[in-house]
Design a protein around this nucleic acid. Structure first.
Length: 207
DNA sequence: CCGCGGATCTTCT
DNA sequence: GAAGATCCGCGGA
């Protein structure tokens, strides 16, 4: 169970999730993103990982959400059409990837916190020189963006088509999901909006 | 394994 | 001006 599953790029799921998948309540989108496959095509190689940990950030009554302050230059995409990427620069050093949910005009997004690497591990190790084992590649929101080369250039990117997509997974049925409080926030910290797969070694460590 | 502090810079107060 | 949806290396148990 500690070994990472590895697939040839040709074996990865081909169908990207549709707009309708994201056009729903944020919490539901968050939970159902678990097990799906994030695919990044770059410089002729295919990087992919299975989503094993996410957090929901709501549009109302959630003081931890960036959208709580309303529409700004940074947050405008969160209020836009669902299925697009909200990427922000964190702590002056890291990028974090979110997926926009809810109908157009309403705020809500899902932070992708951890992946189980599936494909392109050699390239991921190149992008993360300090990583020693596969579990060091994508076991945190800043790690996975570095491993997959996701930056502010992906702000607003359409995740239903193109070089950065989230794809359907064949084995959603057997997933065991655990729901806890979110990590690393101070406001609205009591809300149980973090979801992860039970006992998956690639889930980030709580502090 | 666990806790602590430094790095680094954008955003909002 | 301060906080922040983080990561890493260090030191101690």
């Amino acid at each position: 169970l500690t070994a990472s599953r590895r697939y040839d790029p040709g074996d990865l799921p081909q169908n990207a999730l549709s707009r309708g998948f994201y056009d729903r309540p944020t919490e539901q989108v968050a939970r159902e993103l678990l097990g799906k496959t994030l695919v990044r095509e770059i410089d002729g190689s295919v990087l992919a990982g299975r989503i094993v940990e996410v957090e929901a950030y709501l549009g109302e009554d959630d003081e931890a959400a960036h959208s709580f302050a309303g529409i700004t230059e940074r947050t405008r995409v969160i209020f836009g059409p669902p299925g697009h990427a909200y990427v922000y620069f964190s702590y002056g050093m890291h990028h974090c990837l979110n997926v926009v949910a809810e109908p157009t005009g309403r705020a809500g997004c899902v932070l992708v916190r951890a992946l189980e690497p599936l494909s392109g591990l050699d390239e991921m190790f190149r992008r993360r020189p300090r990583a020693k084992a596969p579990r060091d590649l994508c076991s945190g929101p800043g790690k996975l963006t570095q491993a997959m080369g996701i930056t502010l250039s992906h702000y607003g990117a359409d995740l239903t088509a193109g070089a950065l997509t989230i794809r359907e997974s064949p084995d959603d049925d057997a997933l065991i999901v655990r729901q806890t409080a979110r990590i690393g926030i101070t406001r609205s910290a009591e809300l149980p909006l973090r979801f992860h797969l039970l006992d998956n070694p690639h889930v980030s460590r709580a502090r």
